[in-house]
Design a protein around this nucleic acid. Structure first.
Ligand SMILES: [Zn+2]
Ligand SMILES: [Zn+2]
Ligand SMILES: [Zn+2]
Ligand SMILES: [Zn+2]
Lengths: 135, 135
DNA sequence: ATAAACCCTAGAGCATGGTCTAAGGTCAAA
DNA sequence: TTTGACCTTAGACCATGCTCTAGGGTTTAT
């Protein structure tokens, strides 16, 4: 059984983060010591690992919430269900990717149209372009 | 001179958004009517256009703040300065892009390792992988 | 025995970019 | 004249993911 600071060190997160995850229902640490200290079991450690792993691949806490539900009921779920979930996330990520690429392109277009010289920017095509709405 | 609702309609933003921008120093509408209504000049309209244009290419409000300072002092600034600013943003965008690509790859790796079948997910490689920290 | 290091709670605060509400004043048309 | 559409303010609220503070109690080492 680990105390919060021990788990925090193990998982490389802050104690506050662990309490935050608990408050938001991501972990439900069972036991408390006589003094009311949280005590984390092996299962809890595994759960934290899961959360951190899921964060690392870009899931939001909300999504991790749903993933954890899939995880704890994994004998009632199929691989199909889990894979679907991941694939749905991939398509969200693809949308973000497309948006950022769009932004990058716009910025590159702006940048390459500008002479980048020493003269006053009164004629700068970047400043001009920004005030022309495409809408 | 436009009232706030008129400018809002023109710029396709809400009245609240315009007041929000003002509160955060992005616009500084000069005049008020007798009843205390904000009155926007041609210059203000141009400024709003600029803000919206800059938002469209992905600048944050904070960055737009800085851009506006460049814009109003553009006779003291050079194209070099402006282009530098845009190029700095491009490198921020590139970092975000790299991070999202990393996430996408991780998710794809997860997805493709899963059989996606109908059997119980007790053996699912996705769930397994998520609880294995790379750290 | 006392100080450092740890634990607890509730709740505020941060950054981002707004949106909405309450409680009021103003202006135009019917 | 009264309704509705517009305007004002200050401040609360949304999501996201923490981080920090205040004001306590506990444990451990010296
Ligand atoms: Zn130039
Ligand atoms: Zn230029
Ligand atoms: Zn399978
Ligand atoms: Zn699977």
């Amino acid at each position: 059984m680990l105390k919060i600071g021990e788990l925090a060190a193990l998982a490389s997160v802050s104690r506050d983060t662990l309490r935050f995850y608990e408050k938001h229902g991501l972990i439900t640490p069972g036991e408390r010591s006589g003094a009311g200290y949280r005590l984390y079991s092996e299962t809890d450690v595994h759960r934290i690992s899961f959360i951190i792993g899921a964060k690392e691949v870009g899931f939001t806490l909300n999504e991790i919430h749903q993933l954890l539900e899939l995880e704890v009921t994994k004998d009632e779920k199929s691989c199909y269900d889990i894979k679907q979930f991941v694939d749905a996330k991939i398509s969200i990520v693809n949308q973000r990717l497309a948006e950022i690429k769009r932004i990058k392109k716009s910025l590159q277009t702006l940048s390459s149209a500008c002479c980048g010289g020493d003269e006053p920017a009164t004629h700068c095509t970047i400043l001009e372009a920004l005030s022309e709405q495409t809408n």
